[in-house]
Design a protein around this nucleic acid. Structure first.
Lengths: 110, 110
DNA sequence: CGGGATCCAGGACGATACTG
DNA sequence: CAGTATCGTCCTGGATCCCG
């Protein structure tokens, strides 16, 4: 199995806010910086920008700048970014099947 | 979309060595501590133990201790841990479809 | 409005030595 | 062999201030 490929993919998605950003972009498709900032309470501008840059550099999100007097920047998922939906879905499915962490004491194993 | 579920799943798999460990356990099924240590060059015992504990606490790997004079501990994936194979596969598939980061200058967009 | 720069705290990671 | 304890380093994430 190609561990390296999955590892690389994981490294891209690691980061405190990347998933949140991605899910917001799955939901709304196109969002401005300030909209993301408002949609994600608790994130600092620095982190938002940083994670956004990472995602952009990795080809997951796309950044569109409108050269206007009040600056306007839009963020959206690239086609490849959208393509990770089934992978996220599979992961979600897996997470949903998590068995309870066996709280009760084993009745037969002393 | 349930961002929280995927986020939680991701947090479990974050960590410099967890993926490596998991893939080794996918490959060999059962491994002793020293075998993992040898199979993963560059990892310190501390990190190996730490990541192993995390994976164990999250119900992904199982730890079997043999009460012998030379201590013997085996690690293997739990059924749930093995169940994440399709998710990893989907992620790998997604990673494989990554388009090249557009190196050439756009010929039509000046 | 969007984003860069700087400073700072905390946790992840790593090397080493020691124990049962 | 398997694991713990301690220490140090680096990187991540956060607050604040500054710029076009």
């Amino acid at each position: 199995m190609a561990a390296t490929g999955v590892e690389a993919a994981f490294r891209m998605l690691e980061g405190r806010w990347k998933m949140v950003i991605i899910f917001h972009l799955f939901d709304r498709a196109v969002l401005r910086f300030s909209e993301l900032e408002r949609a994600i309470p608790g994130v600092s501008q620095k982190m938002l920008i940083q994670q956004l840059r990472d995602l952009e550099r990795d080809g997951i999100v796309e950044r569109v700048v409108y050269p206007q007097v009040p600056p306007k920047v839009e963020y959206r998922l690239t086609p490849w970014g959208q393509a990770m939906c089934p992978a996220l879905d599979a992961l979600l499915e897996w997470a949903a099947h998590r068995p309870p962490p066996k709280a009760g004491p084993a009745p037969c194993a002393d």
